[in-house]
Design a protein around this nucleic acid. Structure first.
Lengths: 226, 226
DNA sequence: GTCTATATCGAGATAGAC
DNA sequence: GTCTATCTCGATATAGAC
């Protein structure tokens, strides 16, 4: 059912569909262009003009479709966060089922790290989204930082699971080690990879995300075992 | 030799000294205020007006003493980076002497992590400087990021030492694990601590930097041993 | 709904008085 | 050297034509 398959269809319907589609298309163009530019250059270094120019839409589109530049940033952040955390929760759930209620540390960490690492792959559709999320965490608006601080229910699933896996550890040991693991994850920024590549003279390649995930899991699992 | 110990001294000399001192004082007031505000709120969220108001000096001071807001940021970054890396290099040197040329992994990591962790102490003079440096790493100007990427000689001392300590590891294993360790370090931002405190319901305290250093060293050392 | 033109604001930088 | 007043620019947001 291509748009041209039935040109004789009612004119009114066609206009309606076109209108709705165009609006959705424009809004999405803005969303995607903004996410990309924010991820690459930082929120404050990208103007509404940059965004609309890159998206090939009108300057007023941002305010019309999202209300403000801040609100646009927030909407991107929310959508991608929900998306990422849903993947993580699904993997944690699967691991819990596999192990009849209490998966080992490695499986819990894998549920936490695999989704973002998959997003990091050079050809992955969400590659730029991950960079956006990492940036938003420290460069975002007050509203975003407020959400990050108060909404920790997502993380709690993982700390709870880790405590069940390691009941011998004091809770604060688990929290700190989870903090360290997240630090490793959030350091996966393009700029940091570039720096690492300079240091290693090109021998480290972040393109092989499977290998990188394995390295991170091994490092973090050993840290938890200590 | 306090300034009031010899009020009968030559008037000309006193004026000269006062002039020089006042200039140095003003410049330093700007430097310190800017470092603090940048560290707390981010480079882009702090205006020259904010800085001069906080420092209690004139609006034109930033441009007069530093040339521009960017140049001010750069000067703070350079001074603190040199300061931090000097402490680290000294510790690495001492460890190398202690172990007759090739210190173990733990001592190398301690040389890398102890100086910044000491700075993190609640009553430490450089507490805010560390937050500044962490922020500058991702939020700084292009010039700062360029320096970070090209000047890796400081880091190379540590990767070389680690390779000597673990000649059995492939160089890229060392580079990646160093990258992970630095990720842990750079995650020590106030905002991340706050979030961790919410998650742990106050049981994690970053105020005890000795304990935090020990935790980080144990985690990273285990990661290197894997 | 879309787009142009513009209002409004706040920023960094600076000229010129003292 | 210091400070006030101001220049200039670039930003977001929006009014109003179509």
């Amino acid at each position: 059912m291509s748009p041209t398959s039935d040109v004789a269809a009612s004119h009114a319907t066609e206009q309606e569909v076109e209108g709705v589609d165009n609006e959705a298309v424009t809004k999405n163009l803005v969303f995607v262009a903004a996410e990309r530019l924010f991820a690459l250059h930082g929120f404050q270094n990208v103007s509404v003009r940059d965004i609309t120019a890159a998206a090939g839409v009108n300057l007023a589109s941002v305010n019309y479709h999202f209300g403000s530049k801040d609100a646009l940033l927030y909407e991107i952040f929310r959508r991608r966060t929900v998306e990422l955390n849903r993947e993580r929760a699904k993997k944690l759930h699967e691991a819990t089922d596999r192990h009849h209620g209490s998966p080992p540390v490695r499986d819990i960490l894998a549920a936490l790290l695999t989704p973002p690492l998959k997003w990091l792959a050079p050809d992955h559709e969400r590659r730029i989204s991950l960079q956006f999320l990492i940036r938003a965490r420290s460069e975002g608006t007050d509203e975003i930082r407020k959400v990050l601080q108060t909404d920790v229910t997502h993380l709690r699933r993982f700390s709870d699971a880790l405590m069940r896996a390691r009941p011998d550890l004091a809770p604060e040991d688990v929290y700190w080690r989870l903090h360290f693991t997240l630090g490793m994850l959030h350091n996966n920024r393009f700029a940091e990879f570039d720096r690492l590549n300079v240091l290693s003279e090109g021998t480290t390649s972040e393109a092989d995300v499977e290998a990188l995930l394995e390295r991170m899991l091994a490092f973090a699992e050993a840290g938890f075992a200590a």
